[in-house]
Design a protein around this nucleic acid. Structure first.
Length: 962
RNA sequence: GCCGGAAUGGCGGAAUUGGUAUACGCGCACGACUCAAAAUCGUGUUCCUUUUUGGAUUGAGGGUUCGAGUCCCUCUUCCGGCACCA
């Protein structure tokens, strides 16, 4: 009697059996090579996991199971990221303690994970909010502290004077408190920081060797934001104040025309002249009351005020007015800049708005390095003062260009400027001589130059042309006759603007088109120095080094590297976190809690709401706060802030290697055995938070000698998000979440969901969930179920079947290869094809072949990482004694991967015109002969001349005919 | 604005090095079974024209090639991230 496929009746049975037999427990050492497969440990919030979350764990589980079957000692653990704000807010909302909330939610999450049949080693389960765990989080805080990487500093935070509380940036709306509507202000609070900036260079450099997606690496690179430059010190006229600025372009120092300070800059009050005070103060007030969100808008118009003071340019003594403006950020560099409007877009906008001078000191320089005009090495350059006539025909919107007849050179009308001749006349003369057009209207002569270095084919010399651009409109088409010697050389052509860029052979087309759009625009690139005294004529990049060297020698500047990344603020004025293990003593100051007094336990509190005075609720608990100084024994107070939850998640992957260690966070040998993590799987949302913090802590541990490796995650896999069927992100508020519980309840079963999660699309690509598609996965498993049970109830036979062997070996080959590259979707489609073919054989021949037992065993093994329950059940049905998940992965035999007969496509002039069937590895001559005999092909060849024949073995034959 | 990624049927998607585009699944249509429905099994399914033949087609345009979804150039759209970082 054959049972119907009913997941409900088999899945929980096997889940219990697996847990009881402990087959997924990782032994610390057993001689096999290790594999550490890890998914981000989840945050057990009040909202249950939906099918989007489940995909993450399904991928990890398939990888873990595949590796187990391939002989690896696999560590695949699970735990709970339990501390932090969401749990606390959930508890507050439901009027229960966070501890209870976490207990309830982890129970629910664990049940969800278990019902999916994931192969976790639950004996290593951990919870970051338990003292046995956070004791070591505090221990790491102390490690950082003792290594000079944790410090306390005052920092500005949003503060609501009515609610008497600190607000997060996103809780400030239009400069007002989101709760009471009062205007907020910034208040300085003492906070703890981790000095992640000390590791900026290592965090940046080591990214190169990681097997992570390019996009995440780029995000981390941008976040770290390294930029090399210099700090330059300016004297303030009539004051002993000095202003130091950071710049990446010290070469543009001669072009500085004003200075700008951030409104928060410490020197603003000191240098502002008395008659400017009121306006400056008013400006600063208005800036402070505007929200960060508003200040971060880059498209708003620049604002600022003059302080009345002047700085002195250290290189040329120029007087530079000092302004205050909020486009300069206080948190980056020194909070002050030297403004070079000719070579910086922001400074340019500011100068335009406030009518400040713009002095260009760098002229673009383009060197032709490729093509016919590329400069010839070793030849002298012939320098020429030249002019470029840009002639625009307003009627056709085309530009007058010339094409050389004798050599492959295209360009605008250019020519040398004769002695004593002004550029505009020179330009008119060249246009007339070369093209005959005489009626030109001067549009503008903005004094724009470029340097162009190229090989002049006609003159056979390397040219260094210093081109001045003069802009004309064509008044009429009247042309004078061009001298024959010019006409023999050049041909005038009119080129539309969108074709210009690719037309030019000598001048950089991209720059030119930009110039035509707007000649009045800052030049941001490198080039030749002008108006720079002794630096004139230098390349800007060389000039950069010279100026920094010169300033360094007189102590007015130095080379500096800056990072966008800031130190990591870890203080949280909230209850639900690991207490910061620090004691403040009036006599001894900041005293770290001694190691033997850890953990500093988080006391259980009745009321955990933020207290309203900007301190954590712990501050109210005298029995917690009041303590004795570990140094002098006198009365002292505890730090009452707790640590950012990201501290807990910065080392959990190490704890999994040794989760029950009471003496250390982990033993070195176990950590070095299991880590680094071989496959780390999770969404991209942690790109610059957790993934950067965890790398930072790992590097600190490495430097402290705790571990042998300095990167925690060798390979990172960012799985693609599952969207709701409507194409939106799944969220409880939108009411479009789909939970696996309901689908299992409906009878689909965990195995179908698992297959669907992986089959739905490439592992790293976002896709919409489809419940109809889930039906397809279910049908597929059902077909497997039916096939195996029909086989079990059949009489069998003893015929040999090569076809069956071929099908199975091909499937083993395809699935094995796909698993290595995470091609789960194609692996599953190969299994579907395999089952379809097995049905076909069954329909033709029944179960007569002797290979059926092997074929079905193989099929189940290949399917086991995806659908562990049904495979286990069927495995027992066909006589398996041990768990299928302890079996070895099948091997394929190369001999069965190809067919005896192959179909060769016949192309004529690149078009498929027919196909022929031949024995595998037939010779080209044979195939050509067969092809030419084919009547269809013959028709195409008759009366034509065969020029070329291309043969791709076992695939394609291509005739080229005329 | 900058950086990263993508675009293939009605839908999700497949396609070693350039070598028969549309595998697999969904949906749809038809057939078998059934009193009937569901389930299951089978057949078909890129588009246009069509008896067959044939033609077109991988976001758009151009290029290289005997041959391009795949390589090169230009552009469009979408997704993700960063955003006054001097």
């Amino acid at each position: 009697m054959m049972k119907r496929y009913n997941p409900k009746s088999i899945e929980s049975k096997w889940q219990q059996a697996w847990e009881q037999s402990g087959i997924y427990r990782a032994g610390d050492k057993d001689g096999r090579p290790k594999k550490y497969v890890l998914e981000y440990f989840p945050y057990p919030s009040g909202v249950a996991m939906h099918v989007g979350h489940v995909r993450n764990y399904t991928m990890g589980d398939a990888i873990a199971r595949f590796n187990r079957m391939n002989g690896y000692n696999v560590l695949h653990p699970m735990g709970w990221d339990a501390f932090g704000l969401p749990a606390e807010n959930y508890a507050l909302k439901n009027h229960i303690s966070p501890k209870r909330a976490i207990a309830e939610n982890t129970k629910r999450f664990k049940a969800q994970l278990t019902q999916m049949g994931f192969s976790y080693d639950w004996s290593r389960e951990l919870n970051s909010s338990e003292p046995s765990y956070y004791k070591w989080t505090q221990w790491f805080f102390l490690l950082l502290y003792h290594r000079g990487l944790a410090y306390r500093k005052e920092s500005l935070q949003w503060w609501c004077p009515f609610d008497k509380t600190v607000l997060a940036n996103e809780q400030v709306e239009g400069g007002r408190c989101w709760r009471c509507g009062n205007e907020v202000e910034k208040k300085a609070l003492k906070q703890w920081f981790f000095k992640i900036t000390d590791y900026a260079d290592k965090l940046l450099a080591d990214l190169d060797d990681l097997d992570w997606s390019e996009s995440i690496k780029t995000m981390q690179r941008n976040w770290i934001g390294k930029s090399k430059g210099a700090e330059i010190t300016f004297e303030v006229e009539g004051s002993d104040t000095q202003l130091t600025v950071f710049t990446t372009r010290p070469d543009t120092l001669p072009g500085v025309t004003f200075m700008v300070l951030a409104p928060e800059h410490a020197a603003v009050q000191r240098i502002t002249l008395s008659q400017y005070r009121r306006r400056v103060s008013a400006y600063i007030r208005s800036v402070q009351s505007s929200s960060d969100i508003y200040r971060e808008k880059t498209d708003r118009e620049k604002t600022g005020v003059f302080t009345g003071a002047y700085a002195i340019n250290p290189i040329n003594g120029n007087k530079l007015p000092i302004w205050v403006a909020d486009y300069v950020l206080s948190g980056y560099g020194t909070g002050a800049i030297m403004a070079v409007p000719a070579h910086d877009e922001r400074d340019f906008d500011f100068a335009k708005k406030f009518n400040l001078p713009i002095v260009s000191v760098v002229e673009p320089k383009f060197i032709a390095v490729a093509g016919d005009s590329a400069v010839k090495a070793g030849k002298e350059f012939v320098k020429r003062e030249s002019v470029v006539a840009v002639v625009h025909n307003p009627k056709t919107d085309e530009y007058l260009c010339v094409s050389w007849k004798t050599v492959p050179m295209n360009g605008l009308v250019t020519g040398g400027i004769n002695d004593g001749e002004d550029p505009v006349s020179a330009a008119r003369r060249e246009v007339l001589e070369e093209t005959g057009y005489e009626n030109l209207k001067l549009v503008s002569d903005p004094g724009v130059y470029i340097h162009s270095l190229f090989y002049h084919r006609q003159k056979r010399q390397n040219r260094w042309a210093h081109f001045r651009f003069v802009f004309f409109d064509l008044l009429d088409e009247k042309r004078l006759k061009v001298k024959p010697e010019e006409a023999a050389l050049l041909e005038p052509v009119w080129i539309a603007k969108d074709k210009l860029e690719s037309f030019f052979t000598v001048i950089e087309g991209k720059y030119l088109v930009k110039l035509l759009d707007n000649p009045d625009t800052p030049y941001l690139g490198e080039g030749v120095m002008i108006r720079s005294g002794k630096y004139n004529g230098l390349n800007s990049s060389d000039c950069r080094e010279r100026i920094v060297a010169d300033l360094t020698s007189v102590h007015k500047g130095k080379e500096v590297t800056n990072y966008k990344m800031r130190d990591w603020l870890i203080s949280r004025q909230r209850y639900w976190g690991a207490p910061i293990p620090i004691i403040y003593c009036t006599k001894d100051g900041i005293v770290p809690v001694p190691e033997d007094q850890l953990p500093v336990k988080l006391p259980e509190l009745e009321r955990i709401e933020p207290s309203g005075d900007g301190k954590s609720p712990l501050a109210k608990l005298k029995s917690f706060v009041n303590t004795v100084c570990p140094k002098c024994g006198g009365p002292a107070e505890r730090e009452t802030d707790t640590m950012d939850g990201f501290a807990c998640s910065s080392w959990y992957f190490l704890r999994f290697a040794d989760p029950r260690n009471h003496n250390q966070p982990f033993s070195k040998s176990k950590a070095d055995f299991w880590l680094p993590v071989d496959d780390y799987i999770g969404g991209a949302e942690h790109a610059v938070m957790h993934l950067l913090y965890a790398r930072f802590w790992t590097k600190v541990m490495y430097d402290a000698g705790l571990i042998n490796f300095n990167e925690p995650f060798k390979t990172l896999r960012n799985q693609g998000m599952i969207l709701a069927p409507d194409g939106n992100k799944m969220s409880k508020s939108k009411g479009n979440t789909i939970e696996p519980d309901a689908l299992i309840e409906q009878g689909y079963g965990a195995d179908s969901i698992r297959v669907m999660e992986l089959f739905i699309g490439p592992w790293n690509q976002a896709t919409n969930w489809s419940t109809e598609g889930l039906g397809g996965a279910y049908r597929f498993l059902q077909r497997v179920w039916t096939l195996v049970n029909e086989y079990v109830n059949s009489d069998g036979g003893d015929k040999e079947s090569d076809t069956l062997k071929r099908i199975m070996h091909k499937t083993i080959h395809k699935v094995s290869l796909d698993m290595l590259s995470l091609g789960f979707n194609t692996a599953i489609s190969a299994l579907m094809e395999c089952v379809n073919q097995l049905y076909r054989i069954k329909a033709e021949d029944g179960f007569a072949a002797v290979e059926w037992q092997w074929a079905i065993e193989t099929l189940l093994k290949l399917l086991a990482p995806f659908a562990p329950h049904i495979c286990e059940e069927l495995w027992q049905n066909i006589g398996g004694e041990e768990s299928i998940h302890l079996e070895s992965w099948p091997n394929f035999n190369q001999a069965y991967l190809s067919e005896d007969r192959v179909t060769i496509a016949i192309q004529i002039n690149g078009k498929i015109r027919g196909e022929i069937s031949v024995d595998q590895n037939s010779s080209q001559t044979e195939i050509e002969f067969t092809a030419k005999e084919n009547p269809k092909i013959k028709a195409y060849l008759v009366g034509k001349q065969l020029i070329k024949t291309i043969y791709v073995p076992n695939k394609l034959l291509s005739f080229v005919v005329k």
